[in-house]
Design a protein around this nucleic acid. Sequence first.
DNA 1: GCCAACGTTGGC
DNA 2: GCCAACGTTGGC
Length: 140
Amino acid sequence: MTFWLFKSEPDAWSWGQQVARGNEGEEWTGVRNYQARNNMRAMKVGDRGFFYHSNVGKEIVGIVEVIRTSAPDSTSDDPRWDCVVIKAVRPVKQPVTLDDCKITPGLESMALVKNTRLSVQPVTEQEWATVCAMAQTAPD
DNA sequence: GCCAACGTTGGC
DNA sequence: GCCAACGTTGGC
């Protein structure tokens, strides 16, 4: 299992909307960046990820699961772009903010901190465990 | 709303 | 294949 982090501006697509989609999940469309796309291509069904609110909140608010591997992005005519489908698993008990991550030992090399503009990021197992503990949420 | 960081595009 | 111009993201 590999861990990831998905960014979304809550004004465009929020955790609440993601939850409302239930087990159907939501196609993670709109990614137009190779690194982010390549990360999605590396995902397997069952992989877990954090759901992060950028701009507004700037915090990790929930845990999601990949339920379909990468396939053509229905919102693009360009065959270069594809995306996975994710569903909400559960909210975190205690949202973990960007500021929290910045000051927490062990998280200083998180992509969220170091590569702020990457919208779909890998998360290491250690980072996953650390953030889950901060979020008072089980890591599985 | 500003702007720094970064990615992409296209002319040469 | 370099690099200037441009566009976008996202923190502040």
